[in-house]
Design a protein around this nucleic acid. Structure first.
Lengths: 130, 130
DNA sequence: GTATTATTCAACCAAAAGGTTGAAGAATAA
DNA sequence: TTATTCTTCAACCTTTTGGTTGAATAATAC
């Protein structure tokens, strides 16, 4: 069963899995730009950037409007809602479960901080803002 | 400049860009499981699932603990913090900018709701970069 | 008109993803 | 010991990524 929603998640996550494409999105957050403008900062051919843009369009994150020979690109970050939801849901489930595990460990081994699940410790450690 | 943080974002987004791997994460949210258990629901070979697991491990989302011949897999969703942050930041910038644009349009064209954000790209032309 | 600019299309390449099968390793069961 | 179980390793295959170059297309500038 390969639903459309699933496919959309695939395409969006995949579109975000490349630094050039993320940089393009960040650039377009400042306003519309032509393909040439978007490609200018990158040390690669215009064609390569053009392909990245197509992948972003496929995910619905970038829209194109032709004005004469120029193609104006603009951002549509609405498709990010679903990946954001998926991540938030997973993290919510996970942290809930870890909290339950901690309660269980505390019950069996009261007052000792050392019995904390290692994964829980890693959570507390790496969820600080960089 | 290919920083470690950037590479980590790449690997995490890529790990999430496949329905099988997302299903594996959802399965592991219910608790530890062996490779065979994780592979059981999927209509593909055990080897294929094993490869998916390696990609999840590469992103740091899955940890492995060997007990004899069994490999117990567990979840670590801490690495999801950065992708979540990236998405949230982008969306925040974007919606802020759309709101500012709406204020501008309202100023120029008071009382008219017809030019609101998803459709107002034609008016963003004036914001072209040099 | 011709030349220049903006962009894609087409072909090619190397590397990675996503899958298969068959064998090997290592721990358990008989 | 021998057989079975759990898992990876090693090839191999096909498709997709991510990049290149060279041409084609289309609009603007001269």
């Amino acid at each position: 069963m390969v639903t459309r929603a699933t496919r959309q998640l695939d395409l969006t996550f995949l579109a975000l899995a490349d630094p050039t494409r993320r940089a393009i999105l960040e650039r377009l957050a400042q306003g519309e730009a032509r393909v040439t403008d978007v490609a200018q900062p990158f040390a690669m051919s215009l064609n390569a950037v053009s392909k990245h843009i197509r992948i972003l369009e496929r995910a619905g994150l970038v829209c194109r409007r032709r004005i004469g020979r120029e193609h104006m690109l603009s951002l549509d970050l609405a498709p990010l809602a679903r990946p954001a939801d998926w991540i938030a849901t997973q993290r919510a489930f996970w942290t809930t479960r870890l909290a339950a595990l901690d309660r269980l460990l505390e019950q069996r081994n009261p007052g000792s901080g050392t019995a904390r699940h290692p994964v829980n410790r890693s959570l507390q450690k790496s969820e600080r803002s960089p």
